[in-house]
Design a protein around this nucleic acid. Structure first.
Lengths: 398, 398
DNA sequence: ATTTTTTACTCAACTAACTTGAATTAAATA
DNA sequence: TATTTAATTCAAGTTAGTTGAGTAAAAAAT
């Protein structure tokens, strides 16, 4: 009859309160420090309601006062802001051969991070390894486990029923047949969110990055392949089965390079780390021992420079497309690739001028670089947890 | 400080009630007829709360009883359904040279529709013309104006601050400088929504078309140009400035046909009515007096058949892209173009097989034809009004 | 045929959380 | 020093939800 996971549920006093808490927290996140009256005006709640909620939040250690605002007439407002140490969240990125763990405080600041080899990324080995990793992360950081809001696990998609997995070098098998979230929740003994890297990166950028005031933007994520995270109306977009944003397999050149997915000319075969290495290999020139894309770029390696040109061309096409389809406030580029490489790509972009995005009154540039570097995905996982406790949502069955 | 139009607002008793009314209505829409206990279980509200809400809705004439459910144990449930004549909504599509008006009852059924010439589509002429048109629509249909929920005005985008208007033959100037919604609301004396054709079509398809049970799907709309309407999580996606879905100007052939927008190879120059006429003209063959695309198709006109091939090729690319980016449950094709033409296009599609959309357990086909034909946009306008009174939303400033 | 079980629904009392209005505090300005 | 302005608190009032007891009506069991 009624499918699980569908349908919006009704509201009552308790759910209203929980919604309002989030509304207040979300406002403070974006405008801190802020006083009660200011929050009241902006959140559509009476001062008294805000006052009660703030008292609770302060009692829980999530908010704290930071003096008074002065200079204006009237009684100076007591200013509130996040208490960075009031709570924390963990993010873990699981890669084919390693895990990356990040611990964020409530303000979205990175307190601790660590990368660890993971020779066997099957669920049987990975889940205990993650459990151990986060235990040590909590211990090293000296936090109290009772302030842990949850853990965000980041894995490359696509997930679930589709059974498909494009990214040639994605996480190995064994994950399809289990309920990943439930398994982790049992093992870690805290709330868990599972998300793909691009979406996590987008959320991270909104929580504490370049897009903190934006409710509509896109994040193009350079991972093993290429992913797109979309924030629309302040929320991440997941699609019918959570596989939205497969931008890597959009065809930007008809009959172009062959892609492991079976098609030809996928964006990912040009503009991704995978694509870069393939290009360099094909170019055949001498490559220094232990090179990285960044080092080649700094050395002005000709093949590398040529790749940047080619990749930027394809990216420009993709960005134009994303602008036309999503009408974002900006498009952010980032992920597991060095900042200088992203900057070089951005410098070479040639975006279509005849676009709704090419409007004169822009506040943000059409394209920006992400701000959290290679840890983006792990940070994004933790950011999603914080985001969830902070951002008001339509309540949905589960 | 805080931008208008942004931010989620807090909840209180009154807003909870309004939310819950919509939750109940939305459930009844999708599952009618339904009893109070059943609604209570599915909406996460107590029976008593549902009971009170239903009493109100019945009092307002929006719901009505339709006998008892029998066959099961226990006291038979009193079944409720929409009272089709309890309210109605109007939709008006404004075209460069005409207006189309549709009147829907609460069940989404078309009660009345009418097309009227509009020699001058400037706001000064069009607004009074629309006012007159809807007055006569209400009169002819014999409805009581107090049951009018509102009017949805459908115009080709893009709207607003961008100032840009791609579609070569879109509505003429004069609309950029005014607050369209406010002007219409003043003239029509009822709530007004302004929306683009593709989004309106998508909403219409969900309210009373092929997608009534879907919360994630895309609608490719053949208007003057080509638009994309996206429903994600049950809501239409508008982007930062309401211009999301400009699929017509996605480039499907590098250095292809010139487009009025300044770029080359836009999808719209191939797969749209505009594109079809241009193709036929260029092909140069004899075209019968007073031909239409449908008549050419039925006559197996070679140029027309060739256009279908070419357009289907480009559409396939676009649909693949849309599937990758939005992960919809299905993609619907429709709009101001004859059903047979759409069917011919669908028959010739060659969709990428290596796609997350190519999953075995599909309930809906990857591509479907829309069900409301040429009136789609006008019906969509009215559908948006009904949708808004029925569908629970995150409350947002305005 | 009667009793039991099951389910739907109503009545009345209760409660959580928001709103309202009056009072208090504290700074800027007159 | 008095007045104005703005932030905040206190206390009472309101809305709309929940809870628990009781009634109604059909199917199943005795």
């Amino acid at each position: 009859m009624v499918e699980e996971g569908t349908g919006v549920i009704g509201s009552n006093a308790g759910r209203s309160r929980s919604h309002n808490r989030r509304v207040v927290l979300d406002f403070v996140r974006a405008h801190e420090p802020a006083g009660r009256a200011e929050i009241s005006r902006s959140c559509g709640l009476s001062i008294q309601a805000v006052s009660n909620i703030i008292d609770t939040l302060e009692g829980e250690g999530l908010l704290r006062t930071v003096g008074h605002r002065s200079g204006m007439r009237g009684k100076p407002a007591l200013q509130y802001q996040f208490n960075p140490d009031g709570a924390f969240a963990l993010g873990v990125e699981i890669l084919p051969d390693a895990m990356v763990c990040a611990l964020l405080n409530l303000s979205g600041k990175r307190i601790f991070s660590r990368r660890k080899k993971l020779p066997d990324a099957s669920p049987e080995k990975a889940i205990p390894a993650v459990t151990k990793l986060i235990a040590s992360a909590i211990e090293v950081s000296g936090r109290d486990r009772k302030n842990l809001l949850g853990t965000g696990i980041v894995m490359p998609g696509p997930f679930g029923k589709s059974g498909l997995s494009f990214s040639g070098a994605a996480v190995p098998g064994g994950w399809e047949s289990i309920d990943i979230r439930q398994e982790f929740e049992k093992a870690l003994n805290c709330p868990v969110i599972i998300e793909n890297d691009a979406t996590a990166a987008a959320v991270s950028e909104r929580l504490a990055g370049a897009a903190s005031e934006l409710n509509n933007f896109c994040f193009i994520y350079f991972g093993t392949g290429l992913g797109l995270g979309v924030i629309a109306g302040g929320h991440s977009q997941r699609g019918a089965l959570g596989n939205a944003g497969e931008i890597g397999h959009i065809i930007t050149k008809a009959n172009g390079l062959p892609c492991p997915c079976g098609n030809f000319g996928c964006l990912e075969t040009y503009a991704s780390r995978m694509g870069a290495f393939a290009f360099l290999e094909k170019a055949g020139g001498e490559l220094p021992e232990g090179f990285t894309l960044a080092s080649l770029l700094e050395a002005q390696n000709p093949a590398m420079l040529e790749w940047v040109e080619v990749a930027a061309l394809h990216l420009s096409q993709a960005i134009g497309m994303v602008e036309n389809l999503f009408d974002p406030e900006t498009v952010i580029l980032g992920g597991a690739i060095a900042d200088v490489v992203i900057d070089a790509l951005i410098a070479k972009l040639d975006l279509p001028t005849g676009s709704i995005a090419n409007r004169p009154a822009r506040i943000y540039p059409r394209v920006m670089r992400g701000s959290s570097g290679r840890l983006t995905a792990a940070i994004g996982g933790a950011a999603m947890i914080i985001h969830r406790t902070i951002t008001p949502t339509v309540t949905v069955f589960h």
